[in-house]
Amino acid sequence: MSTPAKDFTLAELCIVAAAEAFRDDGEVLATGIGVIPRLAASLAMKTFNPDLMMTDSEAFLLSEPNPLGKRGDDFVQANETWMGFSRIFDNVWSGKRHAMLGPTQIDKYGQTNTSALGGTYEKPKVMMLGARGFPGNSISHPNSFFVPGHNNRVFIEGECDFVSSIGFNPERLPKGHSLDDVKIPRVITNLCVMDFGGPDHQIRLLSLHPGVTLEEVQENTGYPIHVEGDIPETPAPTEEQLAIIRAMDPHNQRAYQIKDNPPGIRA
């Protein structure tokens, strides 16, 4: 059944590693923003967690995830219920959701920035999207992150220039809340898999992708990473998982998500 593949890309390794974030979620809405998170959620739903819920990225919940990109004229998506933007918040604020997204900055507290870089808040050097739904997501339900280019501009040394999402910063803890209320189950990057399960919610290394060293990860992270014992290698995709990924991504959009689309095992 589960034959480890020999030939796979780093994107495919990341999809499989990211799918693991949804394994123990039970019946929640899995929202993967971007190609790799969406494929990860789809893979989880089609394999080990069929109870997950998923949207068509527009206004319907589906009982089967949609393949990415243009589909044939005879394709009929498996609608389950309507869930437009005004109703999405009913789900978000109920807590029954796990989102995976790619913020521009992630600091040592797990706080993220999607809004503005540099300069002043009144006149930022680089304006981005805005806070979007990050504030509400982060205080309402678990959020995992995917970072296609692991470096210390993403994992910055100081605090985020603008804090879009609540993290494990004691100074920002709202009255009556506990830092344990914040859930960041996984951080998947092009180098490794991490979580915030270290002492006092410090970022912690869970696995290294094939050929990546601890030193490389630490050099590219602006704050210390907690390391416990021997760090395993991120498991290779199985042939079965690759077959599902190919079916879910028939136009191979995953090949454009990590710079130069490198192989999963470094040459």
Binding site: W93, Q111, S115, Y121, A131, F134, P135, G136, S138, I139, S140, F162, V163, S164, S165, I166, G167, N169, R172, L173, P174, H177
Partner: peptide, 13 residues
């Protein structure tokens, strides 16, 4: 009332 925004710069800015 909502808890959305707590702990973020939505409140401080």
């Amino acid at each position: 009332p909502t808890e959305v925004g707590l702990g973020t710069d939505i409140i401080s800015k």
